[in-house]
């Protein structure tokens, strides 16, 4: 305690304390605001009735999406028709930030979403109202933690997913510069929605081919791999022998040659 009070007499004590206090307050406020907004937005989704959601969704669509997908979501040019894609597709594409796309040339990339949960839900409801399609899910609806079986999920994953997304879900190359994205850090519901809607180059995995229970198994396995500690040390990206070979040549042989240079040099 005496030590602490000694610091208190330091001439930087006050300014530092002030800066620290301000920083903490700011951080707390930002975090709080975000949390509040997200909760508010979620609460809004729950409280809002379908008709209002569809109406608001239509407005957002007209402002943000119609320039590519057409005023009635009928699609135009490279932008596909959204009639019948269902709310699952909208929730996946908008919820992972892929839509709206930054530019038309490349594959839609995952980025921080532009619309909040309420707006996304409104868009999804609007698109779902055009024609029936796969329904969006909430994280609460998919009880992967309770019902999933990682071992079965692993087998399913290796059979159906690993060829594109890599054996550890790190993503991989497709043709002509396209790629299958990494699955690390993806919301479980988005994984589920991707399987039932088949976004972009990804094929559809219908409920008869991979049952809903099996889908939970897959999610459970992905989440287990994601949270798996690096059991043998640094994981080197989990992309297989290429990075291992690189490390063997650079750090491995490099360090040993370094030692050899020291070993054969003359001492002074």
């Amino acid at each position: 305690m005496a030590r602490l009070s000694r610091y208190r007499e330091h001439r930087f004590f006050r300014p530092v304390l002030l800066a620290l206090g301000l920083f903490l307050a700011g951080a707390l406020f930002t975090a709080g605001k975000a949390a509040a907004e997200s909760m508010e937005s979620k609460a809004l989704v729950i409280s809002a009735d379908k008709a209002t959601l569809i109406k608001e969704g239509k407005e957002i669509f007209a402002r943000g999406c119609s320039s590519c997908h057409g005023l009635n979501a009928e699609g135009a040019g490279a932008a596909p028709s959204l009639i019948g894609v269902g709310s699952a597709s909208v929730d996946f594409q908008v919820g992972t930030g892929r839509m709206p796309m930054a530019d038309m040339s490349q594959q839609a990339v995952r980025k921080p979403p532009v619309y909040d949960e309420y707006e996304t839900a409104a868009l999804a409801e609007y698109v779902a109202s055009l024609a029936p399609g796969p329904k969006a899910l909430t994280n609460e609806e998919i009880a992967w933690e309770r019902d999933g079986n990682a071992a079965s999920g692993g087998t399913l994953f290796r059979n159906n997913c690993a060829m594109c997304h890599n054996l550890a879900g790190q993503g991989g190359a497709l043709t002509q510069g396209k790629y299958a994205p990494t699955l690390m850090g993806v919301e479980p519901r988005h994984i589920y929605e991707a399987m039932i809607t088949g976004p972009q180059a990804m094929p559809v995995f219908g409920d008869k081919v991979i049952t809903p229970a099996e889908k939970l198994d897959i999610i459970k396995w992905i989440k287990e791999v994601e949270s798996e500690p690096s059991l043998g040390g640094a994981t080197l990206g989990r992309v297989g022998p290429v990075t291992e070979g690189l490390l063997a040549w650079t750090l491995g042989l490099g360090a040993l040659i370094g030692v050899a240079v020291w070993l054969t040099s003359k001492a002074r």
């Binding site: 690993a162 991989g172 043998g232 640094a234 994981t235 989990r238 297989g240 022998p241 490390l247 040549w249």
Partner: peptide, 27 residues
């Protein structure tokens, strides 16, 4: 000790119908 190599538990057992993206041999 510090660098993981060939984490076979991630790859799963061999069956001819399965494959992973980026299947490479050693250097």
């Amino acid at each position: 000790a510090v660098a993981q190599i060939n984490p076979i538990w991630v790859y799963g057992p061999y069956t001819p119908a399965q494959i992973g993206a980026g299947s490479q041999p050693d250097w």
